[in-house]
Each structure stands twice: as C-alpha cells, then as structure tokens.
Amino acid sequence: MANNDGAPISVDVAGVDHDESALSPEQMLKLVDDQQSVMVRQQLSPIPWMLGVWGIAWLIGFGLLWAAAQSGSSWISVPLVPASVAFAVLIGGAIVISTILGIRISTGVQGNSTFAGTVYGLSWLVASTGFSTVGAGLIQNGLSPELASLYFPAVFGIMAGMIYFLGAALWQEKSQLVLGSILLVAGAISPFFGAPTNNVVMALVGGGSMLIAAIVFALHLRRMA
C-alpha cells in the first residue's frame, strides 16, 4: 500500500471487522508497544520485591551476627542465640517469599521456561545444602567456631553470586551479572577482614548492593509504564 501522495494514511483491508479496524497505523503500532510493555512489566514486577527482601535479610541478618560477636564491648549488644535464630528466620523468610514471588511470575505459563525456572529454583536449595554439608564436614574434622564463622558467610556470598550468574545466562540479563559479581567479590574477600568484621562486609556490600539493585529495578519498571 503506497502512501506517497501526502494524504493522511488510512488503511482499509477487505475482510476486517469494521468495529476493529478504525485505528490508524500509528495507533496500531502504539497498541503493539503498549500491550508488549504490559506483558514485560507484569513479568518483571516481582523482581524488585525479591531483591528487596534478600537485601533486607542480608543487611539485618549479617548485621545481627556482627553485633552478637561484639561480646558486650560495643554500644550495641545482642545475645548470640537470638541473633542466630533471627538470622535463620530472615534467610528462611527470604527463601519462602522469593519462592512465592517466583511462582507468581510463571503463573499461567507452561513450556520450556517452566523447566528452566524450576531448575533455577532448585539450584539455590542444592547449592546451599552442598555448601552447608561441606561446612559440617569441616567442623567434624576440627574446624574451629572462629573459622566456621568465616567459612559460612563467604560460601553463602559466593553461592548467591554464582546463582545470579546463572540467572543472567538464563534470562539474558546483564544487570544480574553486575549484582552477581559484587556478591562473589563480597563473599570471596570477607574472610580477609576476620570475624566478626566479615559479617559487616556481607551486610553492607552484599545486602546494600541488593537493596540498591531493587531500587534501580523498580525505577526502571516505572519508567517503562
């Protein structure tokens, strides 16, 4: 359909329902863009929440572990047992919430990505079980509590970083590579700070960057609207 005569473009095609065909090409193209951005935003909308929940769990959880290890010498004093329980509850809560959000993303979708999503979800469970088992084995063979308190946060950070790398590959999302790299570095360097400062590294570098990522992602989604 050539339109070089300068007249307003109107498209009329035989066989089109008349109630449906009244829109101009501009409007039709806008309809496509709007519909596709609704789809993408719906898909991505839980992600800032997931990142936020994890960021808070790390920030407060590792913060509490650090505070508990201050042994009364500082302005903040938290008994070790409640701090450890709170840490477990925060991490467990983050796992539950992000699993529920993950299921919500894939509601009504069936096919190849169902498998990919399930494997991704399982990778958290499998990796954390693996690393914990190694830790338990090391403790049984004489790893001191001091060294264990360096080991667990470090492997936790490395595990989370590697799984964000996996997510980046799966959804072709470069932003997850950035976050994954930060978590990997935080985990890897944390033992060099010694206990309990290693927990501060995890809380601020790990938790802090996840919270920043949550805000950046939320703003990005808002700009798409």
Binding site: V11, V13, V16, D17, E20, S21, L23, M28, L31, V32, Q35, Q36, V38, M39, V40, Q43, T107, G108, V109, Q110, G111, N112, S113, T114
Partner: peptide, 24 residues
C-alpha cells in the same frame, strides 16, 4: 489488522519460544 487480534498476537509474541500461556 484488528485491534483485539493485534493485542492478542502482540501479547503472545512476548513469550519465549516453546512457552504457552493459559487462557485465564
């Protein structure tokens, strides 16, 4: 070229290859 069907097609085109979307 009918707005309702264009929207349906545009929506389904955002799915990854090999994925299906439930009617509801």
């Amino acid at each position: 070229h009918a707005s309702a069907r264009l929207r349906i097609t545009a929506a389904l085109a955002t799915l990854a290859a090999g994925d299906r979307l439930a009617f509801p």
